[in-house]
């Protein structure tokens, strides 16, 4: 039997595992920021949070008064749902008089898709552009809601980069 000679390093010789590592390269600062910065570099505040027991009418009056399309529904600081203009169109419009005094919990979208504040802007954009969610709640690592991201805030982020370039 012919025994093959071991190739490579001698026992005890150090080999740098990162010697072939080449860092990611980006075409511009915007691309780098999309991939490497945290979502908190985007404008994720202010956001409006309500209790799931708030009435549908009161919630809609808040949205109308402030002029927002979406708010988060929380218990404590924990995310339990999201309520948007689309929920009003799909679940509220035709039966408004019957359900306006009921809790928003009954018509919200429960357990919405969210991202962590340490995720990159590109990850949130993926959910919005590919999966079709218009608003994405942002959580801290303890799962508390710390913000919300919508399309206008994304375009503002891009514009800010253009102005700084």
């Amino acid at each position: 039997m012919v025994r093959r000679k071991r190739r490579g390093t001698q026992e005890g010789e150090y080999q740098d595992p990162l010697k072939d590592y080449s860092p990611a390269t980006y075409a511009d600062e915007l691309e780098r920021s999309l991939c490497e910065s945290d979502i908190t570099e985007m404008e994720i505040k202010p956001f409006l949070a309500i209790d799931p027991g708030t009435s549908v009418e009161e919630t809609m009056r808040l949205m109308d008064k402030i002029g927002i399309a979406c708010l988060v529904v929380t218990e404590g600081d924990k995310l339990v749902g999201i309520f948007s203009e689309r929920d009003i169109l799909n679940k509220v419009a035709e039966q408004y008089e019957q359900i306006k005094d009921g809790p928003v919990r009954d018509v919200m979208t429960p357990n919405p898709v969210s991202v962590y504040e340490t995720d990159s802007p590109a990850q949130a954009m993926n959910l919005m552009a590919v999966s079709g969610f218009r608003h994405i709640p942002i959580l801290d690592l303890d799962e508390n809601v710390v913000g919300i991201l919508g399309p206008r805030r994304v375009t503002a982020f891009v514009q800010k980069h253009f102005e700084e370039a």
Partner: peptide, 27 residues
């Protein structure tokens, strides 16, 4: 509208935006 602008931006960064792993915790 806002959604169309979002999709246009995403189309410019297909590698960065369109392929992503969601909810990556630090620990």
């Amino acid at each position: 509208g806002q959604r169309g602008a979002m999709e246009y931006l995403a189309d410019h960064f297909p590698r960065q935006v369109k392929v992503q792993k969601m909810k990556s915790k630090l620990f």
